[in-house]
Write a protein that binds this DNA or RNA. Sequence first.
RNA 1: UGGGGCGUAGGCUAACGGUAGGCCCCGGGUUUUUGGUACCCGUAAUUGCAGGUUCGAAUCCUGCCGCCCCAGCCA
Length: 578
Amino acid sequence: MSEKNDNKQGKDFNAASESESRSNFIVEIIERDLETGKWDGRVATRFPPEPNGYLHIGHAKAICLSFGIAKEYGGTCNLRFDDTNPSKEDTEYVESIKEDVSWLGFDWEDRLFFASDYFKTMHEYAVKLIEDGKAYVDSLSAEETAEYRGDYKRPGKNSPYRDRSVEENLDLFSRMKSGEFEDGAHLLRAKIDMASPNMNMRDPAVYRIRHASHHRTGDEWCIYPMYDWAHGLEDSIERITHSLCTLEFENHRPLYDWFLEQLDVYHPQQIEFARLNLSYTVMSKRKLLDLVNEGLVNGWDDPRMPTISGFRRRGYTATAIRTFCDRVGVAKRDNTVDLALLEHTIREDLNETSPRVMAVLDPLKVVIDNYPEGESEEFEAPYFPGQEEKGTRAIPFSREIFVERGDFREEAPKKWHRLAPGKEVRLRYACLITCNEIIRNDDGEVTELRCTWDPESRGGTSPDGRKVRGTLHWVNAATAVTAEVRLYDRLFNVINPLAVEDGHSFVENINPSSCEVLTRCLAEPSLAGAKPESRFQFERIGYFCVDRYDSTDDKLVFNRTITLRDSWAKIEKKLGGK
RNA sequence: UGGGGCGUAGGCUAACGGUAGGCCCCGGGUUUUUGGUACCCGUAAUUGCAGGUUCGAAUCCUGCCGCCCCAGCCA
């Protein structure tokens, strides 16, 4: 424990950001349990998704928590699929979930489990519950069941079938299992208390009839366990110590405890924490599914989605996501974390790990009049300026180059350091050039800039010490490779997309310019053949990732992960405002 | 309305009866061949409100107020 505290105060922020677990109420419980020997010194957690959708950043928090705690305390964390509802689940989802957890950097080793692995055991325990007189087969319709349950104000009333004999219950349950009845004809219920103020305790359903093919057990079963029955048993069977879940299950804990007590089996502790909400996006599987189904995004792994696979495709790193999850902390109060924190974490990681290269998104031709035609030369540029030992590459240079159209202004505003008539700027790693003339087409649009260079400034240095504030990125016309660049921005343009008036849908809050595709971008030749998922910083623009699906050697496709901070934009905004 | 939770700067979070700390955002500055990074400085919380206990309260007690969850044969 003291070692942890020392760590927290240490100066090694890199190490801290990777694995430091900050103080939170769950860690406190675990440390206390470790001290008292409550679980014989074991720490066993689990991450139990239902395979009915893709994992999102909220799940990442849960994964980092459960796997992270197991790792930190020398325990284990199981990956367990809670596949108790065959009509919603699919192997496509289990595959994607496994890939995402593993990509995030966590290893379940040989502890991959499925609730469906325990169907037989769960059924046996259900029989035991019936034998003990603690469960009965109800034959009310779904509507009647709801009516009998009562509401917050009124207690429920007992079903007329509640007092069936153990023999009759056993017989009916067995016939439910053998497929004799239609869906909904009967329901196995726990006999608890129809007047409980906790609705979950009003004779909750244990097994329902569902004639559906299960993605793993096929048609072996036509009755399936309910979450409350299944989950505690799964935890118990796997000898979980701390069963971490989100706040909405708080009301289920009495039931979780009740079942395990009645069965007199190993009994883990359920602990609830607040789920993660992120500004400018939605986190519910249902809403994300809507976006996918309505074609508002290109699938679950669209780079604008808050899914793990979407973030991955966008270029976010697993390290950054883990760091983010660590920084948001774990507590019990509802929260909405600022997207800016995620973005900061991504930039922080990418800044350290991404090689710098040059690419021009919106090219404007520049001809250097005093550079001899037909000649060329190369400049050596480091991938990590200031850390030349990490490698360099040659950048060709000649008479015709391209710069960013946005880096030129016919009339330079105040504090403008970039290109404008008569102004001298530096071409990064290359030289100093001065703009002399503007060439236009018939429509008056600027199509070309005529400049001169100072041959003494080779490498970009100022030969006489004259001050040149502006440094531009550029590419050599003859050797540039073309690329498609997809500029992604936040999917929604309001902090809380779900806050809409009646009759309106959250999709109305979608940011219409959340994806802009540029097809005629020009990149330096070293980028030719860049491997899928490799990441770069395009100097002065942002971080980009080679699309893992659409990019080929013939056609490069980059996704913008995140822009660089743009303090000029702030300055200009301020100037404009005055 | 019954029950279960939760209220600490704009957003997250720490503090475990000893006098509110950190990160993000925001503002200013230094360095800079990225208007990036790094570094420095700064703004901002009478801890939801009102009482009480105590030498001392964000922490304990009481009462209010506000927000979230629960009436699936979903998880």
